[in-house]
């Protein structure tokens, strides 16, 4: 794969939390038009990777490009679904209000919602089967419904690339199925979907491309090639001892990772 054909390119991407790398030299090219899974154990930096790609967390070293361009040039083509638990669902807002936020990506701080925007919001609600709940307070939603609302907000952005952080966590079986069907129909429209996931059983069925990581990148490639015993052991079978020793040294002695 060449860089110009990629949906996401990361180059030596490193984020340091509390003097210790949370992700370390993540370097890959991801294809377009595929459902891509990012997998790894808890605390392996999956969410941090998404946040670094989306510019929510500033990477300390390295960079990432989207559609071979810096994020700021293609921001309107990228949509992000944060973890459901990352917000307070007691916030005074309705389902419609939250999905409308998806249109703010285009409208910015000031422009009002047009008829077309309103149509897109309704359409997005229908795609996740939440249209009857448009006026419902978000505090009254179940976990699965909350996740659908977040997805509807992302769809309302009408982006080409979707980054989703653990959309399958804590949702009921019917929502899980609805989400995967939605992902497939978006893929069929030519969109690229990058999904942080941790359930190994479903991984093979859901994803066409897999990124396996544990702070460092273990493997990135077509699911059938990557999903083998060796890679799984490398990803989940504990951290590399020497690597984590070095990471701890960096933290203890406050060494900088790079110096000029």
């Amino acid at each position: 794969m060449e860089a110009q054909d990629s949906s996401i390119e990361t180059h030596d991407l490193t984020v340091i939390y509390n003097k210790k790398p949370a992700i370390w030299n993540i370097d890959f090219l991801l294809p377009k038009g595929k459902i891509i899974g990012i997998m790894g154990p808890n605390g392996s930096g999956k969410s941090t990777l998404l946040k670094a790609i989306m510019g929510i967390t500033e990477p300390n070293i390295g960079y990432s490009k989207i559609f071979n361009k810096p994020l700021d040039e293609v921001r309107d083509r990228v949509s992000y679904v944060p973890q459901r638990q990352s917000v307070d669902w007691d916030f005074p807002a309705s389902v419609y209000d939250v999905v409308a936020m998806g249109r703010f990506a285009k409208l910015g701080l000031l422009k009002r919602l047009t008829e077309e925007d309103k149509h897109i919001i309704k359409d997005s609600l229908e795609k996740v089967k939440m249209a009857p709940f448009a006026n419902r307070q978000i505090s009254q939603l179940s976990g699965g419904q909350q996740q659908r609302v977040f997805l509807a907000r992302a769809i309302a952005q009408r982006a080409d690339l979707y980054l989703m952080d653990e959309p399958f966590v804590g949702v009921d079986a019917s929502t899980e199925e609805a989400i995967i069907n939605l992902l497939k129909s978006l893929r069929d429209e030519g969109k690229t979907l990058v999904v942080v996931h941790h359930d190994l059983h479903t991984a093979q069925h859901y994803f066409e491309w897999l990124v396996m990581m544990n702070t460092r990148l273990v493997a990135s490639g077509p699911a059938e090639e990557v999903f083998n015993e060796q890679v799984l052991t490398d990803t989940y079978g504990g951290t590399l001892t020497t690597l984590s020793k070095v990471a701890n040294l960096l933290q203890e002695k406050s060494f900088p990772m790079r110096h000029k």
Binding site: K51, M54, G55, I56, D72, R75, D76, V78, S79, Y80, P82, S86, V87, D88, F91, A93, V98, M101, F104, A105, G108, L109, L110, R153, Q157
Partner: peptide, 23 residues
């Protein structure tokens, strides 16, 4: 009044506000 939308979004979901390029 002018920044109401921005204030609302950073109160509800700061990460998303950043992701869609709000200042």
């Amino acid at each position: 009044a002018i920044l109401f939308r921005g204030y609302t979004l950073i109160s509800f979901d700061e990460g998303y506000a950043r992701a869609i390029g709000f200042p």
